[in-house]
Every structure is written in structure tokens, then in C-alpha cells.
Design a protein around this nucleic acid. Structure first.
Length: 481
RNA sequence: GGCGACGUGCCAGAGUGGUUAUGGAGCGGUCUGCAAAACCGUUUACCCCGGUUCAAUUCCGGGCGUCGCCUCCA
């Protein structure tokens, strides 16, 4: 099986092959931990989680090491824990604490929340989750090297990367430099040699996080935003690696600058062989922003929707397409997940079950997740329709294995319904003893063919959010969908 | 202003140089005392204008429109 991935740098879909057949290396830009992660943050987390799962599967199949199946997959997703926004948030939330202590509180809390959120969305933990503040030494080494080789310079206690020192700067975003400057809305710091030069290191203000500066700068300072990813990917993946991912908004300037730093420091032709970018997300047709009041956090969504409904909703759209995130979409996704749980019920994943080959093949075409869901619908249809006997059992196992491969349907139906946040809320308002009594009364009424009474009870229960199902084995009830 | 992405049926959303995408909704039916769930059937497409081609929704050019980036951003 051949994996094809779209590469932003070359603007084409190419067959993926790792540099080292023994080890696939992927780096994805993670969150800056200053606030609840929003639904836009969830997209790369989910998209690259699917890719991680697929890479591990193909590695186990021996796709890259001649069938041995010993290829390791290293997935690095960083945590940015040094940033102006963090400092601002810390000062705002804990005005009475020393800034550094306040910052630690903010980053620890946000970090924990982020991990809870993405776990609820069915994302596996990455292999390594490096923190920027734990890689200051590597950043300083990179900066020293860049200055030594005249790719960077010191100016007023800042260290700046000299864009003109790199002939093919802006190759990733394909932006003509002169025109960018003309349209730029930034005030250019007077000490910059070129308006496009960007900060590698800057002096810290009193009270701010500070580390000894590189390049003989006496004043303590802190890193610029881009250098951390160059440092962390270098430390954990090496000078060149296979896949670098993130949101499409990071193409410029963040990834462009990472490339400049890493390539100039290591004298390499590329930083990563495949640059993958997920599309942006709108909320109910509008740009998500705090001022519009439509800022949707993962945490809030999880109060109403099961994590896998959110995940499914994300996977319905190809990762490079824009998504309009809507309640209607979530409702549709929930219907499908409900339906699919009806099919798998409480079955556990069978030891011999494998994901459907078509699902895998579709996924191998640049992560065509909507295509895989279509395939799952087709299998579901066969299970509910024509299939029977052994064929049906086989299909169900394959269905379950395929869904789990995508991080869906990992629970039992019972656990899913029980854990459903909205149903759980309704459940707390109802009296089970009373419902069972009403169901019993209705059964008696039905036996006596007193259908007026029977329907009255059904309506009474419906008003409470309880729906009845009459089967040949008796009447069961559950909380309405 | 520059760069980029995208425009598919009521909605969501794949894909393809010629053959039903799929899901949701709607409508009709099966089942049911009535329902629910499920199943079966069914309606509605490829922004506009040129070009290439035997054939274009699919390729090329132009136009229009939407969105994003160029400032922190997934």
C-alpha cells in the first residue's frame, strides 16, 4: 500500500517515503498554553492523530522496511510555554503573584486542560511533547551558530535573522518579498537591517521570564516565537525529518521562518520533506473571534457533545478544505454515531479483526477521511441490509476495527449512551422508579387494548425526554436523542 | 495592493475526461395497535463565458463570487 501526501512546498501530492526506513519522523506545531483550546486547535490535533495512526499501521505492515515491520514512528507535538500572550494572561489572572509564578500557574492549568480535551477527542498522545522552556539551551546554540555564519546579527540586545542571507527565503509561502513589505501593516523596528528580518532572541523586561542571552549579550532575554520549533524538532528529530504539520495560517511567517533558521543552521536543502497544513475553520459561517462572541472551546463543546461526535464532525471534511463548524453539522454527526453504535452494540474488538482495506486505501490518498466515512456507511448498509450469518459477523468486526482505526466507536454502545453529556443531564432530572412504574402501567393498558391510556403514558414520558421502544421481548426505554 | 485556497443538488461533502458518490433533510412504502429504531424506494447537481476534445462538472484561459494569509492565531 502506497501513502500519498500533499506537500505545501511543492504543491503536489507525492508518494511518501521516510528518509530513514527505520524511523518515520513527524513534527506538528502544538498549542500556546494561555487559554482554553478552541475548536480550531482541535483540527490539527485530530488530523495529525489520524496520520499518526496510519503511519504506525503502515510501519507495522513493513511498507518502508521491506516487510520487516520494525519502522518506528516518532510524532513530536510541542507545547509553547513562553510567549507574550501567556505573560499578559498571567498578569491579568494573578495580579498579586510574582509574574513567573503566575505564568507557571497559567501554563500548567492550560496544559492540563489541553490534554484532557484532546484525549476526549480520541487523540493518542504524541511520542514526545517537548516544552519550549526546556529547550532554551538548544535555541541558544542555534542562534549562536546563525550569528557566527552571518545569517543573524545582534542589534540593541536583540538577535535578528537576516532574511537577505537566505536566497530562497519565502519558498514555502511563495511570497515576493518586496511586495510583502509594501503591503505590510507592521511597524518596522528601527534596528532591523531589513524590514522582513525577524527576532530570534529579545531582551526581557524586568519581571518577565528571562534566561542568559546568547552572543555575548549581557542583558537576560527570551526566545522569539519561531526558534523554538527549530530547536525542538532538531533535538527530537534531527536536522532533516519527514513531515512537518500545522494549521495553514502558520505557513507564513512561522513555518517560513522555521525553515530559514533550520536550513541556514544546518546547511540543508530542506527542513522537512513534506509540509502538511490543515485548512481553517469558520463558526456558523463567520470567522471565529472573541469579539464576535463565537469563540468555541473544545471544553464547552464537550459539555454538550460526545468527543467522538466532535471528532467525526471534523473528519467529515477533508483536512485541507475549510470547515464551517455548525450545530447542524454536529447534529448530523451525532445521528451517524448513534446509528453506528446501534450496529456494533456492545461488542468488543475481535482479536482477528482488521480495518477494511478500502478504508486504509482511501486514507492513504492524502488522508481522504470523508471517503473513508462513505466506505463505512457502505459497510454499515450491508450489515443492516443483505448480509447475514458469518458474513455479517465478519463485516461487523471489520466495521468496528475500521471505525476504531479512525478513533471512532471505541466504546461500547452502553458506555457511549451513559457518557453522553446531554443525555446525562436529562438523566439527572428524571426518576427511574417512576418511569419504570409508568412503563409497567402502559404495558398493562396495552394488554387490555386500552390504547388511549397507553398513548397518554407514551406522551407523558416523551415530555420528560424518555422514548419507548416496544419489542417482542417487552418494552424498553432510553433518553431521547 | 500582494499571495493562496475554494465555488458540486434543500444542507453537508467526496470524486471523476464518457457509467447511481455518500450522508442528513424531504416525500412514498415495509414493520408497528400507534410509535421509535431499522430497512426499501424516490426527488433535486457540478458558478458564468470561451477554448482543447468524439466527449468536460472533471483539463486550459478569462470573468464573477466566497474565504484565508500578509499583525498574534490551528
Amino acid at each position: 500500500m502506497e501513502l500519498k501526501l500533499y506537500d505545501t512546498l511543492t504543491r503536489e501530492k507525492r508518494v511518501f517515503a521516510p528518509i530513514d526506513p527505520q524511523r518515520v519522523r513527524m513534527y506538528v506545531c502544538g498549542p500556546t498554553v494561555y487559554d482554553f483550546a478552541h475548536i480550531g486547535n482541535a483540527r490539527p490535533a485530530i488530523v495529525f492523530d489520524v496520520l499518526f495512526r496510519l503511519l504506525r499501521h503502515l510501519a507495522k505492515q513493513g511498507v518502508w522496511d521491506g516487510g520487516k515491520g520494525e519502522t518506528a514512528v516518532t510524532y513530536v507535538r510541542n507545547i509553547t510555554d513562553v510567549d507574550d500572550k501567556i505573560n499578559a494572561r498571567a498578569a491579568e489572572e494573578y495580579p498579586d503573584l510574582p509574574l513567573n509564578e503566575a505564568i507557571r500557574k497559567v501554563t500548567e492549568k492550560t496544559d492540563r486542560q489541553f490534554h484532557e480535551d484532546v484525549a476526549a477527542l480520541g487523540c493518542l498522545p504524541p511520542t514526545v511533547e517537548p516544552r519550549a522552556t526546556e529547550h532554551i539551551a538548544e535555541m541558544r546554540m542555534l542562534i549562536e551558530r546563525l550569528v557566527e555564519e552571518s545569517h543573524a546579527y545582534v542589534a540593541e540586545d536583540n538577535v535578528l535573522f537576516s532574511v537577505s542571507s537566505m536566497p530562497d527565503y519565502s519558498k514555502l509561502s511563495k511570497r515576493p518579498l518586496d511586495e510583502m513589505i509594501a503591503g505590510a501593516r507592521v511597524d518596522v523596528a528601527p534596528y532591523k537591517r531589513d524590514p522582513m528580518d525577524f527576532v530570534l532572541w529579545k531582551p526581557s523586561k524586568p519581571g518577565e521570564p528571562a534566561w542568559p542571552s546568547p552572543c555575548g549579550i549581557a542583558a537576560p532575554g527570551r526566545p522569539g516565537w519561531h526558534i523554538e520549533c527549530s530547536a525542538m524538532s532538531w533535538k527530537h528529530l534531527g536536522e532533516i525529518f519527514d513531515i512537518h504539520g500545522g494549521g495553514i495560517d502558520l505557513v507564513f511567517p512561522h513555518h517560513e521562518n522555521e525553515i530559514a533558521q533550520s536550513r541556514c543552521a544546518f546547511h540543508t536543502p530542506v527542513m522537512a520533506n513534506y509540509w502538511m497544513h490543515n485548512g481553517f475553520l469558520q463558526v456558523e459561517g463567520e470567522k471565529m473571534s472573541k469579539s464576535l462572541g463565537n469563540f468555541v472551546t473544545i471544553h464547552e463543546l464537550l459539555a454538550d457533545w460526545p468527543g467522538e461526535v466532535i471528532r467525526f464532525n471534523m473528519l467529515r471534511t477533508h483536512y485541507r478544505q475549510p470547515i464551517d463548524w455548525t450545530t447542524r453539522g454536529l447534529e448530523e454527526s451525532e445521528k451517524t454515531i448513534d446509528h453506528w453504535y446501534e450496529i456494533v452494540g456492545d461488542m468488543a474488538l475481535h482479536a482477528d479483526a482488521h480495518p477494511d482495506p478500502v478504508v486504509l486505501q482511501t486514507l492513504c490518498d492524502d488522508l481522504n477521511t470523508p471517503g473513508t466515512l462513505t466506505r463505512l456507511h457502505a459497510i454499515a448498509g450491508e450489515i443492516r441490509g443483505p448480509a447475514s450469518g458469518l458474513r455479517q459477523i465478519e463485516l461487523k468486526r471489520r466495521f468496528k476495527a475500521s471505525a476504531e482505526f479512525l478513533g471512532l466507536l471505541e466504546a461500547t454502545r452502553g458506555a457511549y449512551l451513559e457518557g453522553h453529556p446531554r443525555r446525562k443531564r436529562i438523566d439527572r432530572t428524571i426518576d427511574h422508579t417512576r418511569i419504570n412504574a409508568l412503563v409497567e402501567a402502559r404495558t398493562i393498558a396495552r394488554a387490555a387494548k386500552n390504547f388511549a391510556e397507553s398513548d397518554r403514558i407514551r406522551n407523558e414520558l416523551a415530555a420528560m425526554g424518555v422514548v419507548l421502544k416496544d419489542t417482542k421481548d417487552g418494552t424498553t426505554w432510553e433518553i431521547a436523542r
